[in-house]
Nucleic acid binder design. Structure first.
Length: 282
DNA sequence: TCATCACCTGGAGA
DNA sequence: ATCTCCAGGTGAT
């Protein structure tokens, strides 16, 4: 048995990685692809409706080594001290992919709403532990959904991206098993061919579902963090939007500085800065 | 390669 | 009430 008790479920869920989770009394229930998951903090219990908890919290990572590695940076060290139980989750790739396409120019609350609508309309109803929830829709279903149905889910301009992205998966053009094995840059280029996916969204998908731990999503918050605390180290960052070219050279320097587990560093820093600004989570 | 701009929608603040 | 602005970006020009 792993030392899972060091995982802080609430902190982890409320760190912007996942959207389809709800707290009911003292435990959390969430949707991960075709599975429903129930998590309880103490005693620590993680159960899946499919009876396989797919190392959802990346239990096989050598956390001690990773944390000590990224904590060479003093601010990361502080962020880790602040949320020692924060973990990266390994999500269902298709759900993660659609989720972050929906995240474009939207808020966490709104993203959650869109995804819940998709589940209700296109998912399969499932009962687990007395809870009735719809799973996340399969690629084939979304690929064949009508634009009206997608618009009705309040996706807005993202509706066409979601449909196209689902079609890419359904046709085999995007193959998550293959992307998991591919290296960071191959995977990145492949994902960016899908309309609606740029560097930031690709990084989120790769970090949260494709085991690319050097992914370091740079969004408004991360940019703010780099500008506020790392102006000296990453001197190309300004308050202006990060262009594609800048994003890529910035990423290279970030990996040089934070190391191959830069994604972990990003997650702790992101959590710290959002909490500091009292931003709402789920 | 870079700078602008539009984009669905819902919620917060003026 | 009504308006404006913004929210974990991206694509088209």
């Amino acid at each position: 048995m792993l030392k899972t008790s060091t995982i802080d479920i609430e902190t982890t869920i409320n760190s912007g990685q996942v959207f389809l989770w709800n707290k009911i009394k003292d435990h959390w229930i969430g949707i991960d692809g075709q599975d429903l998951l129930i998590l309880n903090q103490s005693p620590f219990i993680a159960r899946s409706s499919s009876n396989k908890v797919n190392n959802f919290f990346r239990e096989e990572d050598n956390l001690k080594q990773i944390l000590s590695n990224i904590s060479r940076d003093k601010l990361v060290e502080k962020a880790v001290r602040q949320s020692p139980g924060l973990r990266l989750m390994r999500q269902d790739p298709f759900q993660c992919y659609i989720s972050f396409i929906c995240s474009s120019n939207s808020s966490i609350q709104n993203i959650k709403l869109m995804l819940e609508n998709l589940c209700k309309k296109f998912g399969n109803k499932q009962e687990f532990d007395g809870y009735k929830l719809s799973t996340f829709p399969k690629a084939e279903i979304l690929a064949n959904a009508s634009m009206k149905e997608l618009i009705d889910c309040r996706l807005g301009f993202r509706a066409k991206y979601v449909k196209g992205a689902a079609q890419a998966v359904n046709s085999g053009e995007i193959d998550f098993t293959w992307l998991k094995k591919a290296d960071y840059h191959t995977s990145l280029e492949s994902l960016k061919k899908v309309l609606g996916i740029g560097n930031k969204i690709a990084d989120c998908i790769m970090l949260f579902s494709l085991d690319k731990m050097e992914s370091f999503p740079i969004d408004r918050w991360t940019q703010r963090i780099l500008l506020k605390y790392y102006k000296k180290i990453f001197d190309t960052v300004t308050e202006k939007p990060v262009t594609e070219k800048k994003y890529e050279e910035l990423h290279e320097n970030i990996v040089k500085y934070f190391g191959p587990y830069a994604g972990y560093a990003q997650q702790f820093l992101f959590k710290m800065e959002r909490d500091l600004n009292k931003k709402k989570w789920l």
